[in-house]
Design a protein around this nucleic acid. Structure first.
Length: 579
DNA sequence: GCCGTTTTCGGCCCGACTGTTTTCAGTCG
């Protein structure tokens, strides 16, 4: 059982406990444990095998350690069986509908025998929900709308897609004269790979007219909530957007609060309490200040930096705000100097017309040069990927002739001879050793047989990494966000093999891939691995996707030193030299 | 159910909005 599955079971237990009306702190303990498990970079099943002490993990005590052990060894959890004997397990899914929480799920079940979303849709359509105490016609309609939306938008939107909806909205709001300041907070600002909804914050001289303009945005499909300080709309794209208009004195506190994450904020508030302070979206206040809210004088709140400073912390970049140790680092001056787009000196994965790229090597060179790069690698596919026009030995040598000719005409930017070589079924490489030895940079990756069993897939990739010519493992898990799950793979074993054989792991910057993901990159860094951020461009414009890779790298706390394509060419070449 | 530079018991983060309430519960972030 993988960590994500264990975490899922613990989350379900928490929901069932909520429906049952259990002690809220016990519920929170399960939620916290689920998160710890989900974020843990090594599979807990390995720790269980080694008989490691699970109570060393944050939020895991004696009972939860035993539960995890039970899940890993038996695949089941007695507690869950007991709970689902009393409450239908399917009520858990019901609580994922907007407006339906544990209490309402229970009421619907007890009064109307609703167990599934389909049940709920039927009784709501019949009008039975509106008759229940605590429900009405509006909440019944909201439930029906929620079911519709749930089925339509089960997946979170990718960050890049969300940007395409948010940027025009920002421009539209900025045009309004009353808007003095406007920013996106939430997971969008933290640059998470997918976005649930959008949190906008604004300072405005005339709140009501800004809210009116927001509600009138042409892309608004419906208005969910509209009050003095907050309006929520749903755009035609299905994206929910909240706008909060705030006084300038609390803007920084609100920006901090609504940027989150929730876990980061919980940790921050606990720290505040320990310092005799209290933090809310209105500011930092002294805990002993018991005047009415509007009479209190904030210690800080106007700027986000002030909020952190009041708590004895350096300002923390939003990408790090996931409660993964960043608050301690900010307290001790140990925050990493995160990589930026400006640190990048080249791009080490892209395709040309020699295989499935849309532009010639010369055109890619011009595009890289215009982005200020010192070098780039042409890494067309190998022959196993016939559908992409993958290169065999003969055509690869022909490509090198063209590269040599191009090199002779350009001395500002350097072209590296590379290839994205397919890893075959048995872990061998799709190119002869003599040619591999003549390449400047060798990427290997899996494009076929993505559904092998985990042990087989892991062994296949590890075997490829053992080949002495390999420099980079490209898009290691093969996932496509919201479209294709990662390969069944023991990522930790693969990373350890990469470390052992001096192979660099790729952070594929394409927003549909972002592979490796942030937690994997954190683990890679722990193992001392180096990372390359590459766009995998198939056309010149794709080179601009680099920034999504930078976002993801920053979320993992990576610095320029962790990333090989921040190196100047001579040091990069030395690093890529045969091991 | 977890946790401990006051603690092994007694805490555990905070506020807005909605709908159905006639003073507030539930949900959400």
């Amino acid at each position: 059982m993988e960590n994500i599955e264990i975490a899922g079971v613990l989350e379900d237990v928490a929901v069932l406990l909520q429906i049952e009306g259990a002690n809220p702190f016990r519920i929170r303990a399960y939620q916290n444990a689920a998160r710890t498990v989900d974020e843990h970079t090594t599979p807990l099943r390995l720790l269980v095998q080694e008989d490691a002490d699970l109570t060393e993990l944050p939020g895991i005590g004696k009972d939860l350690a035993a539960s995890i052990r039970e899940l890993v060894t038996t695949g089941k959890l007695m507690l869950l069986d007991e709970l689902s004997a009393r409450i239908p397990y399917s009520l858990v899914e019901l609580t994922r509908l907007p407006g339906v929480g544990p209490k309402k799920a229970r009421r619907l079940w007890e009064a109307l025998d609703v167990r599934t979303i389909d049940d709920l849709e039927r009784v709501a359509a019949d009008g039975a929900v509106a008759e229940l105490d605590g429900f009405g016609a509006r909440s019944q309609q909201k439930i029906l709308d929620g079911i519709h939306a749930y089925r339509r938008h089960r997946d979170r939107m990718s960050l890049s897609e969300a940007e395409q909806h948010v940027e025009p909205l920002l421009a539209y709001l900025q045009e309004h004269g009353a808007v003095e300041r406007l920013e996106v907070a939430g997971s969008y600002r933290r640059r998470r790979e997918t976005i649930g909804d959008i949190d906008l914050l604004a300072i405005a001289s005339d709140t009501a007219s800004v809210m009116e303009r927001f509600r009138s945005y042409p892309q608004v499909e419906r208005v969910e909530v509209s009050g003095d300080t907050k309006t929520t709309v749903v755009l035609r794209s299905g994206l929910q957007v909240d706008l909060r208009v705030l006084p300038a004195a609390s803007y920084g506190a609100a920006l901090q609060y609504f940027t989150g994450s929730k876990e980061h904020n919980v940790r921050l508030r606990k720290r505040a309490v320990a310092h005799g302070l209290t933090v809310s979206e209105y500011g930092v206040f002294r805990a002993d200040d018991d005047r009415d809210a509007e009479d209190r004088t904030p210690v800080a709140g106007r700027e986000e930096e002030d909020v952190y400073e009041a708590l004895g912390l350096a300002w923390i970049p939003p990408e790090l705000r996931e409660d993964r140790g960043e608050i301690d680092a900010a307290a001790t001056g140990a925050l990493p100097r995160l990589v930026t787009l400006g640190d990048i000196r080249g791009d080490l994965q892209m395709h040309s017309t020699w295989s499935d790229g849309k532009h010639s090597i010369e055109q890619m060179l011009e595009a890289c040069a215009s982005r200020g790069y010192e070098y780039f690698a042409i890494t067309d596919h190998s022959k196993a990927l016939a559908m992409t026009g993958g290169l065999d030995a003969t055509r690869l040598r022909q490509q090198w002739v063209e590269i040599d000719e191009i090199r002779s005409r350009h001395d500002v930017i350097h072209v590296l001879r590379g290839m994205e070589v397919d890893i075959l079924r048995d872990g061998s490489l799709d190119l002869e050793d003599e040619l591999l030895a003549e390449l400047d940079v060798v990427l290997v990756s899996v494009h076929s047989l993505l559904d092998l069993p985990a042990a087989t897939q892991t062994a296949r990739i590890v075997a490829a990494l053992e080949h002495p010519a390999v420099n980079i493992l490209a898009h290691p898990t093969g996932r496509l966000i919201n479209r294709r799950d990662p390969m069944q793979l023991d990522v930790d074993t693969v990373l350890q093999a990469a470390a052992e054989h001096n192979v660099v792991v790729e952070l594929n910057a394409h927003p549909d891939r972002l592979d490796l993901k942030d937690t994997h990159l954190i683990r890679a860094k722990q193992l001392g691995l180096r990372v390359v951020i590459s766009t995998d461009a198939h056309r010149a414009a794709d080179l601009d996707l680099m920034r999504f890779g930078i976002d993801q790298a920053r979320r993992a706390g990576l610095t320029p030193d962790d990333i090989i394509n921040t190196l100047p060419l001579d040091r990069l070449r030395a690093l890529l030299g045969r091991q």
